[in-house]
Design a binder for these strands. Structure first.
Lengths: 155, 155
DNA sequence: TCTATTCCCGAGTAAATTACTAAGTAATAA
DNA sequence: TTATTACTTAGTAATTTACTCGGGAATAGA
């Protein structure tokens, strides 16, 4: 797993899309202005998102982007993996250099942990975040930032 | 939150330390050889880890590194934050540019998510991973990689 | 058909980060 | 005293980040 500022931009942009894409497509210019991300960089990010079918573009005037599928079917992990390119951490699975040494054990522990993080982020969808946003719409960013925790883990 | 390959190196190295540091300190040379990380890079990483008191160095022959505190008091988040430098994602909390626009709402949603990830990684300690390693010590990396999931979340 | 708007595409790039080499100094066990 | 280890600083090639620039392709509306 990999979680960089690039992934942050992508998640933020997708969140913007989920929030504003209810009636008609959202243009990259709008997202650029809303989120303070350069247009060209957004184009790069959306090229990757489009390749994974996470968004769908509509050309021409009045065009823009839609989510590629319902917000409750797009996980944070989907978004991050689309732009950040899931790096294969260790390639020593069952290789010969694991005998004796701690190396392979450590690596496989890392793999386990990495998978855990991935699964954690798979359980959180854009719809979850949007729902959470609905709650705090009233306090306009100034209220106490306290409420219930995100209900993200499948019980 | 930020999770890069640098953080991966740090976690891997700390894991190595937790596994091998039972009897006497572990040298960076050993970790370097075990994990395939260059010595100088380890020195950089351990400088950061030492600054956060996550490790304690002992100089001279027979020296090396100890964990700075018990393995069950060192979380993955501790390690990653030490080397990766928790970046303050958005600095628009309660600023004026949040009125009207979606911007601040999106940012605060990202903040919530980021905090969730952080808390998730705070719940996983080195001791958890070591315990997991004990389980699979017998199959030497060749057995089926299946068993119980990490017990990471406080019930 | 023309034009404005939008997505789409690729090349180039400054700045930062990554992962490393090199070349030391400081403490300490033998 | 010497070998071993931690510690420190400087430099650097490769990569990534986030961006600019300059186009092209589709399409709604005039």
């Amino acid at each position: 797993m990999r979680l960089s500022t690039k992934g942050r931009y992508a998640v933020t942009a997708m969140l913007d899309l989920a929030l504003n894409g209810q009636d008609g497509p959202v243009t990259l210019s709008e997202i650029s202005e809303n989120q303070g991300i350069s247009l060209s960089y957004l184009e790069q990010l959306f090229a990757a998102l489009r390749a994974r079918k996470l968004v769908r573009g509509v050309r021409g005037p009045g065009g823009g982007y839609y989510l590629g599928r319902p917000a409750d079917e797009i996980s944070i992990a989907d978004i991050i993996c689309a732009v950040d390119e899931w790096v294969e951490f260790t390639r020593c699975r069952g290789k010969e250099d694991c005998r004796g040494g701690q190396r392979c054990l450590t690596h496989s522990l890392w793999d386990d942990l990495s998978r855990q993080i991935y699964e954690f982020l798979t359980d959180i969808t854009l719809a979850d975040l949007v729902a959470r946003g609905k709650d705090k719409e009233s306090d306009h960013c100034h209220g106490k930032k306290e409420s219930a925790t995100l209900k993200t883990r499948a019980a």
